[in-house]
Each structure stands twice: as C-alpha cells, then as structure tokens.
Write a protein that binds this DNA or RNA. Structure first.
Lengths: 232, 232
DNA sequence: GTATGCGTTAATGCATGCATTGTCAATGGC
DNA sequence: GCCATTGACAATGCATGCATTAACGCATAC
C-alpha cells in the first residue's frame, strides 16, 4: 500500500535500516488497528516484538510522534493517538486544500494518456467493486486513486504531506467502511475530475476535488458523531 | 522566533530533552546560515559542538531529515540540503494553499478585537520599518504577521506544517532580503487581508492571501534565477 | 600517466549499560 | 477506613562499545 519510504521525500537510495523497518511496521500496525488507539506500548515490548533493540524503536517512535500518529510518554510507553472528530476535521481540511491543489496542477501541466488510463482504471475498479458491494476492494481502489492522483504531480513535498495525513484517516476510514452508505455518487466525482484534468481545466479540477473532499469530510465527521465515537 | 517545540503539535508538557535541544539548535544554525547549504557535518562533530553524545544528535538528524532540512548520508555526515528554485516553488505552493485556508477560516470563524489588534500592530511595525528602510526589522514583523495569522486558526496541524515549511524558506528570504526592492506594496495586501477577516469575508480573505503569496513566490524564484543562484 | 584493486581507516547503525526519574504499592498516620 | 509519605522498581534518555561497511589512498599493472 505504501512501498516508498516513511516520508516519500528522497528516500529512494537508502538501505532499509532497522529504524525504517520499525517505522513501516509500526505504522502499518497502527493503521490496521492492531495497535488500538489510546493504548500504550512499552518501547522494550515493541522492540522484542520487532526483534530489534530499543534504539531503533525509540527513533521510530520519535518519527511517528512528529507525524502525529503516536505520543511518546516518558515512562508509560508509546501511546497510539486517537483521532477525535475535531482532529478529523483538521486533517480533512488540509487534505482538501492540498489534493485540490494537486488536481489543479495536474490539469494545468497535463497528464500522459498512460497516466489518465491509470486513474481511469482505478475508477473502473471502484465501479466493479461497487457493483459487487465489495467495500474493501472499493476502499483499496479509492486509496490508490487518491494516492496516484497526488503522486502524479511534481510536488514531492505535497505528496509527502498528503501521504502522511492520508495515513492518519485511513484507520477511521477502515473503521467506518461498513457504517456508511455505499459510495455510489463518489465515483461520479472521480470521473468528472479526471475529465477536467484531461481537458486541462485547472480551476474546474480544483473545484470538483474540493467539493468531493468536503463531502467526504462531512460524511466522516457525521458518522463518528452519529455512532457516538468520540475518537477512533 | 519559534518558542514552541519542533513541530508545534502537542509539545507543551514535554521536558527539554537533548534531542529537542539538538533539533532546535541545529535548525537555528541551518536557518541562520551558520551551517551552509550543501555542506556536510559529521554527527560526531555536531555532537561535540553541542556537547552531547552522538545518540541525540543522530535522532535530531533523523527528525530534521523527515522535515526536509537535511539529508543523513551514511558515512558522509549530515548534509544541509540546498533549496533549488524548484524546491522553492514547491514550498511556496504549499504555503500558499495552507495559509490561504487559514485566512479563510479566520474570516469565517472571526477574530477577537485583541487578535485583530495584534495583526494590525505587526502591519504598523512593518510600515515603520519600511519608512526607515530597515529591512531586518521589516522581515521580523512580516515573519510574525504570517506566523501569528496561521497560529490564530484552530487547526494545529496546519500551523505545524506551515511552520515547518516557513522555516525552509526563511534562509532564502534572509539571503535575498537585500536583493529585492523594498516591499512597499506588500503591506497593502496585509491590510486588505485583515480587513477582509474583520468583515468576515472568508472567500475574499482567501483570494487576497493567495494572490499575496503568489507574488511573493514569483519574486523569490525570480531573484534566485536572476542572481544565478541555482540553490540556496 | 591513468586506471584498477586492495587494504586501512573511520563513521555510523545498532546493542547495551547506566543513571535518572516517575510510578506503583505498601505501610503508617490520622 | 482513607490518605499521605516513602521506598523499591522499572522504563526511558543518553552514553558508549562494537561490528559493519563505505571511502580514501596507495601501490601496481597496463
């Protein structure tokens, strides 16, 4: 799901250190809810769990803390941060702006037909998944669509930020995946967005994507509130 | 200039560890050009320079690497990353979107008269500095204006991101401070922005600030190109 | 003279040791 | 019976040791 390094920025030619392994593994465990929000985990436990010493785990913890996924509490271990509805609003606000910018830039700079095809194939995959009501498959395709969209832009830093914050809402998305209505209208947005990009209409692309994300945010915050989840 | 922690996010109740000292000191040295872009510094040298052991320095280096300020090269030490004109465009693009969003939200949610006063006092300070052609004083006030503007919003994550990337352009701003014309028109933007916020006109606030930042970006990229600086 | 290969050197990544300090509990006082 | 105070424990932050491995230099071959 995320084959790059831990921040997407110039992490290509680096050997896989223990720290990177730790960051990747811990992040995956957090996103997939193997480490529950609000729970604490001693660094020494995590270390033996990952069969490495405390040092790389500690360094990974510091990095994940900077990314907002955990909090390192001196003698209580690493606390997996829950995302409140308010946090979700923050993250979605940021994702909305930055992804919309990415969409704008893509439309302005143009995409190769190959790239357009990639995006359209994700849309097709979502449609097919929707037809079978396979929500997991839909979520995977949706994830890919959004990640690829941003990654096709040339702004590496933007890609890195979006990737980081997208990770943070993934957990909540997976959790609410079966609580929400089937995302049928969402794909119309995706199609319209790709069309706008293909036509080079930068402002339209931006507007479409902003609206798309605002809807997603409303749905997510709503779900969390409705189900009495104060945090996930 | 930056009294908070190293990411502005929930770093309040933490004791000042060596790692934090290292991050703060190194970042200051980088921003103030004491560590020149492109130069390499062995972790052991930095450690003795900061009178601490290699471990906290190494951890600080990893953090600064994640923030995009340095690159840790296995046997060459910590390399201070230069910012190319292209990098500058990336960073400004991000700052433009996120600060514009902050301006929008501030206008939407409203500011206390106290807060408006703070912003206006920064503008006054800039005017007075401009009258005396004191560029350093202007830069400090401008810095404060922009930082405070974003920090007055309630989106902590947004504040953290902007702060990080603002740091990255600071170095270039200081370097080009005397190469650019006196920023006389810039203050008109600031005033218009604060007015829009005071009037609660969210979209106007967003538009004004976006334009303001676009101008700043053009000027910076231009200066760098014109002076043959491929990177700073 | 240049290029290639090997050996030495040294810097880092990680493991571990040590000291610090907060946590938890038990005991004693009220 | 409840709360406070004190003491033991344990987890982390940082220092240091060790092994790995890349870089640099020198020698040698062409």
């Amino acid at each position: 799901m995320r084959p790059e390094g831990e921040n997407g920025l110039a992490n290509e030619g680096k050997p896989v250190s223990q720290v990177r392994r730790a960051v990747a593994l811990l992040r995956d465990m957090i996103i997939s809810n193997k480490l529950l929000p609000g729970s604490n985990h001693l660094e020494s436990e995590l270390a033996s769990m990952l069969s490495m010493s405390r040092t790389p785990v500690h360094e990974a913890a510091i990095l994940l803390e900077a990314q907002g996924l955990v909090e390192v509490v001196p003698r209580r271990g690493v606390r997996i941060l829950p995302l409140s509805a308010g946090d979700m609003e923050e993250v979605y606000a940021i994702l909305t702006e930055l992804e919309s910018l990415a969409a704008h830039d893509l439309a302005r700079d143009g995409l190769s037909s190959q790239q357009l095809e990639t995006l359209r194939s994700h849309i097709a995959e979502m449609e097919s998944a929707l037809a079978e009501e396979d929500r997991h498959r839909w979520a995977r395709a949706d994830d890919l669509f959004h990640r690829d969209l941003v990654a096709m832009g040339r702004n590496r830093r933007l890609t890195a930020i979006v990737s980081t914050y997208w990770d943070q809402v993934q957990r909540a998305r997976l959790l609410t995946l079966f609580m929400r209505p089937l995302p049928v209208s969402s794909n119309a947005d995706h199609k319209a967005l790709v069309d706008a990009i293909a036509e080079g209409d930068a402002e339209r692309a931006r507007a479409i994507h902003r609206e798309h994300r605002l809807n997603a945010k409303r749905m997510m915050v709503d779900l969390i509130a409705r189900h009495g989840l104060t945090a996930v």
